[in-house]
Design a protein around this nucleic acid. Structure first.
Length: 870
RNA sequence: GCCCGGGUGGCGGAAUGGCAGACGCAGAGGGCUUAAACCCCUCGGGAGGGAAACCUCCGUGCGGGUUCGAGUCCCGCCCCGGGCACCA
């Protein structure tokens, strides 16, 4: 134990001083490499990962909560005998550093590096242990190189592409945002600005290619139902049919496209092809490309005005329920043929039809769709019911199932087309309608997803540059691999407009084409930081690799991550993107073919509130963890986070019982420290009943804590620790004293079980007690094999099964289901014995008043329910 | 509107269909102390009865149901939190 930091002051009853012992042990773990794990480790593998943090300076309470759970797991699995990979890194690109640069003129790198140091030190002070040799940082050139390499891999394989599109523009942050970063009210998640639409050339990842797989594979992961549901909703799969509608004029004549003899037509998508006989109009998105060609001359000014309003109206107004439907729709004067009935139906524009979903055009069936019904009411359009209403139905549009009617109506000509849905259920009618569309060649079955491709371009400086060069002769040219990473220059000026300095940096912008050697321009956009975080967990398996982002054999050792831990706010952003990367890289044979999901188990912790609001820097309602660590210590802080609530629930800081947890640690210290006034008087010789009870309780505790840790019932585990310590206190204060060996063993076990939760105090006490034991005056049998110097490298205790069964148990005696007595019976008592004991009870006799139970429900030895007639 | 979670003492919460309220906080009483704090022990769902040990009844959002037995399972509501939402 000479290399243990527990030193010389074990002579007297030392007070508990977390300020002294916590840094000492943190240094010890770092220096000893206790939690470093090599890739050729022979033990079974376990990969536990907390979402790598954005370096925002000193840790906040959310970090503490997150890393307390992760660290407990790392330490618990290590004691249980696994090789635990527990790495840490920093998501170090992003806007705050750039905004600070704009304000102060300091380079974002200096700002970021400083904050990384603060956070790293903070995380260490919490007691979190990581294999720091594996640290990765998004802004490190050795990491950026491989981010760019992956981008180019995607580009070569058609998974990254560029297109002009109306994008979400944040006027405050002066950048484009992904759909995921825009809130439902049309404001930006980050800046809170009202998001505008702008047409720009942007880079996209083709995540929609993976929509179906991303949906299907949710069945194969062990994730919280909440997160799975959110992802399902986000992917938004809907099945239906797409079919073609021909445009006609008011006289029913086919309209040809200008300067050709092709008839004008458009496609609609519907999930209810079975109701197509009820289509009485159709609606195009204002942005639909066909609109200028079909609009009648008399209505053209009105339509153009309508489109102008729709385009300039902010998202929030467009979604507002305040606006009447009348303002939101507009006739075009054009018509289309319903292929099912041959009927001519008017074409309208409405801003509620989205150009970006489906075909940007819908058939409207007011009989079975409420919004279509409302629209039809305002514009005086016909309503045809195609589904039989149930008896007593009072509503307007009916979207339920029922026998189909009017499909076709008697006078309709469609029957000649060989389709008749009348009398069918919705399911049957859908099938027949879709078969018919396919036979007629006017449509087909179609699946649509709500998920859009991932827009990754950012008009920002502090991000990973997109490694692309534009050449007038050769077009879009990837930067050759041997020239990676493309790094932004340092001599840039940060302008208060927020525009990326790269755009105006001549030395960066102008370059030569790698293909032809001619003049060329660099891409000046950088990547969304979610690109960086989509693959960092892979890099941790082999961060030293210099000729590849990672190596397949190392990945196979560790991936997938066994337990991923982070905030629920990433349910549809990071967690969807990382899944996409894993699947795409697997298909590109960069990852093992069978690695289809990155995170096998996911745990999402709740957020922390103060005064009912989420604790956050911007709200200014932070409680600084460092102040608590400076006083009560990290162990008390960790314990209070574990104790307060089930881990997945949101926490109100007011409920966190720091004081009680600190008191518990003081009590533990006072009992377990050598030369304690509480435990220095002990007894030798045979064990008595109280000693055996403590021994049993110790093993019940081992069993209970192991189970609680396995199922993340940390608040219950802490309650058990406290109850056990209370029991030990009563035990040592018995008049005839505690049995020495029994006491020593139970305290040692308690320290081991508590070690993952409170790593410092347990390490200190364990070491101090071990020093004392090593004194020659103690007999050899006192030094058991679990009592090595360092509690964290001892083996996790195993409960002895024979000590988990008690010889006497409490028999609950109920009469007609009400508890009437509690009696002690032998643990192996059978029904007859239980009944005999119960009937011998005065209380039971008093209740029975001589009546004979007509039925006995027996669950020996714990419960007896006697039924008597009343 | 749709989809997930939740409703248990003054508070956070505990309870494989079998003693509701473990453990902690706050509170009360006692011990230690010249005294206070710390510390140690004990008591705390409600109502009623009893000098007391104790006894009786009620009690897990509301209303039904299943069961010998329901906080737990089923049906129908109410309320709170979160997510999605003109997605055709």
């Amino acid at each position: 134990m000479s290399d243990s930091p527990s030193g010389s002051d074990a002579e007297s009853f030392a007070p508990y001083d977390p300020q002294k012992i916590e840094p000492k042990w943190q240094q010890y773990w770092r220096e000893q490499g206790t939690y470093e794990v090599d890739n050729d480790d022979p033990r079974s593998r376990y990969y536990v990962l907390c979402m790598y943090p954005y370096p925002s300076g000193a840790a906040h309470m959310g970090h503490v909560r997150n890393y307390t759970f992760g660290d407990l797991l790392t330490r618990y699995r290590t004691m249980s005998g696994d090789a635990v990979l527990s790495p840490m890194g920093f998501d170090s690109f992003g806007l705050p550093a750039e905004n600070a640069a704009i304000k102060t003129g300091r380079h974002p790198r200096a700002f970021t590096d400083e904050r990384i140091e603060q956070l790293r030190s903070s995380i260490t002070r919490i007691g979190g242990v990581y294999d720091w040799r594996r640290e990765v940082k998004s802004h490190d050139p050795s990491y950026m190189r491989w981010t760019q390499w992956i981008f180019l891999k995607f580009f070569e394989n058609g998974l990254a592409y560029r297109k002009s599109a109306p994008v979400n523009w944040d006027p405050i942050d002066q950048t484009v945002l992904a759909n995921e970063q825009v809130l439902a009210d049309g404001t930006a998640e980050r800046s809170g600005a009202m998001v505008e639409k702008r047409d720009l050339e942007q880079w996209y990842f083709r995540i929609t290619d993976y929509a179906q797989q991303l949906l299907d594979d949710l069945d194969n992961v062990d994730w919280p139902e909440r997160v799975v549901t959110q992802q399902r909703n986000w992917i938004g799969r809907s099945e239906g049919a797409e079919f073609t509608m021909n445009v006609v004029n008011e006289q029913g004549q086919t309209v040809l496209s200008e300067g050709s003899d092709t008839p004008l037509r458009f496609n609609v998508f519907t999930t209810r092809p079975d109701t197509a006989f009820g289509m009485t109009f159709c609606v195009l998105a204002p942005e639909h490309p066909l609109v200028p060609q079909i609009v009648s001359e008399s209505l053209r000014p009105k339509v153009e005005a309508f489109i102008a309003v729709a385009r300039s109206t902010s998202e929030i107004d467009r979604l507002s329920t305040e606006r009447s439907l009348a303002d939101r729709g507009c006739p075009t004067g054009a018509f289309a043929i319903n292929p099912f009935t041959g009927a001519t139906v008017p074409i309208y524009l409405a801003d509620y039809v989205l150009a970006t979903y489906g075909t940007g055009a819908v058939m409207a069936v007011p009989g079975e769709d409420q919004r279509d019904f409302d629209f039809a009411g305002i514009f005086g359009l016909q309503v045809i019911e195609t589904v039989q209403r149930p008896q007593g139905w009072q509503g307007e549009a009916f979207s339920g199932d029922g026998a189909h009617i009017n499909s076709p109506a008697i006078h309709d000509t469609a029957i000649r087309n060989g389709i008749d849905l009348n009398g069918m259920t919705t399911l049957e009618a859908k099938t027949v309608a879709m078969d018919w569309l396919e036979e007629q060649g006017v449509g087909q079955r179609k699946v649509n997803f709500r998920l859009r491709d991932w827009l990754l371009s950012r008009q920002r400086f502090w991000g990973c540059p997109i490694p692309i060069i534009y050449c007038d002769a050769c077009g879009t040219v990837p930067v050759p691999l041997d020239q990676l990473p493309v790094l932004a220059p340092d001599d840039v000026e940060f302008m208060p407009t927020g525009q990326s300095p790269l755009l105006s940096h001549e030395g960066f912008l102008h370059t030569t084409c790698p293909k032809c050697g001619g003049e060329a321009r660099r891409e000046t956009d950088t990547m969304d930081t979610f690109v960086d975080s989509s693959w960092y967990y892979l890099r941790f398996t082999d961060p030293w690799s210099e000729d590849a982002p990672f190596r397949q054999d190392q990945l196979a050792q560790w991936m997938p991550v066994d337990q991923y831990i982070g905030g629920a706010e990433h349910a549809v952003l990071h967690l969807m993107y990382a899944r996409f990367f894993t699947k795409a890289l697997s298909d590109l044979q960069v990852l093992p073919a069978d690695l289809r999901e990155p995170f096998q188990r996911l745990f999402t912790q709740g957020m922390i509130r103060l005064d009912g609001a989420k604790m956050s820097k911007s709200k200014g309602n932070l409680v600084a963890p460092e102040e608590i660590i400076d006083t009560l210590g990290a162990d008390a802080l960790r314990l209070s986070h574990l104790a307060v609530k089930p881990p997945e629930e949101d926490v109100d800081w007011e409920d966190v019982g720091l004081e009680g947890c600190h008191r518990f640690l003081l009590r533990l210290w006072r009992l377990a420290v050598p030369h304690s006034d509480l435990s220095n008087e002990v007894r030798d010789g045979d064990r008595q009943e109280a000693d055996l009870a403590i021994e049993r309780a110790t093993h019940v505790l081992i069993d209970g804590i192991s189970k609680d840790f396995d199922r993340w019932s940390y608040n219950v585990a802490v309650a058990k620790f406290m109850a056990f310590l209370n029991e030990l206190y009563r035990y040592v204060q018995l008049p005839d004293h505690a049995h020495g060996t029994t006491l020593q063993e139970s305290v040692t076990t308690l320290l081991q079980l508590l070690a993952p939760a409170c790593p410092h105090i347990t390490a200190e006490l364990f070491a101090l007690r071990n020093l004392q034991k090593s004194e020659p005056s103690h007999s050899a049998e006192h030094v058991s094999k679990t009592e090595l110097a360092h509690v964290h490298t001892t083996a996790w205790p195993v409960a002895r099964p024979e000590l988990l069964v008690q010889d006497a148990v409490t028999l609950i005696v109920q009469i007609n289901g009400k508890v009437r007595d509690k009696l002690e019976v032998p643990a192996d008592a059978d029904e007859a014995l239980c009944l005999a004991v119960a009937l011998g009870s005065e209380k039971v006799q008093a209740q029975l008043q001589g009546a004979e139970p007509h039925r006995v429900i027996a669950r020996p030895p714990k419960l007896l329910n006697l039924l008597v007639s009343t």
